[in-house]
Design a protein around this nucleic acid. Structure first.
Lengths: 138, 138
DNA sequence: TTTTAACTAATAATCATTATTATCTAAAAA
DNA sequence: TTTTTAGATAATAATGATTATTAGTTAAAA
């Protein structure tokens, strides 16, 4: 997925390809971490100083509705967002909240097997494992 | 898992086995739906009229920390809770928010394979698929 | 039975998220 | 290119689920 593809998707669905939308999407796309709305706002504000936090939230909702990003909610934390929409594993530390992404063919194959077994077609999915990271293990 | 086992787990970890804790756990256990804190409060209040909503939240946190329940958070909704802590599939409708549990040996086997492949041991896990239910599909 | 650390209930406080609305702009049409 | 306007943004206020606080209560060990 890239900027041009997102422009297409937005227009196809009757939405404008505004610089704010593109900037927010590209920030999440290029982020190795899974940023929160506030972190996204801080970063994108560097290029667009007048960017409002409420715009960030609105854009995040739109991108979710279009299936381009995934929201991960956790207790006591702001939501985190990612653009990896293919089936993959999120390994999450209950201590520090860090999320690591793991992709593998095993997971992709498992997911289609599951869709087959239970006869559904997912718009999106979420596979989380919770375990303490090396730092928090101590 | 049953009442007696929970009493053991609580005491082993230095917590008191209070009637409130047992009632809340049993309510979630017996609930086919995935109740919210408020729904739990409403139900348990029938037996314990003085039960406070804040007690419900505190007990829910404790049970989570003990690995006995799982919290499922979604956008624009209160968290939902379940006692099924073995690897299973939650099929969730983005329209009405309904959650259906599906258990299968395929999933349990997949999960241990995954732990093996990525060398971790999960305290808990979450496998969600999002798709419109038959009612909301229209 | 007594003791006390732990727990509950009531209430207040928090803060991430959502709602509202005046202003602005992407992009289609002239 | 200019005009038009539906749709978008920015600023602010409002919401509400969750968390914090604390005085009074109780499970359970001694």
């Amino acid at each position: 997925m890239n900027r041009k593809q997102l422009v297409k998707i937005l227009r196809k669905n009757g939405y404008k390809a505004t610089p704010q939308r593109l900037a927010i999407f590209e920030l999440i796309l290029s982020s190795k971490e899974h940023p929160t709305a506030e972190e996204i706002h801080n970063e994108v504000s560097k290029k667009f100083p007048s960017m409002s936090l409420s715009t960030v939230y609105q854009v995040l909702h739109l991108l979710q509705d279009l299936g381009q990003i995934m929201e991960l909610k956790f207790r006591g934390q702001s939501s985190r967002f990612e653009t990896n929409t293919t089936p993959h594993l999120n390994l999450i530390c209950p201590g520090c909240g860090k999320i690591e992404d793991y992709n593998s063919n095993t997971i992709v194959k498992f997911w289609s097997k599951l869709e087959n077994e239970f006869d559904f077609e997912a718009l999106s999915q979420r596979i989380d494992g919770y375990r303490y990271c090396d730092v928090c293990k101590k």
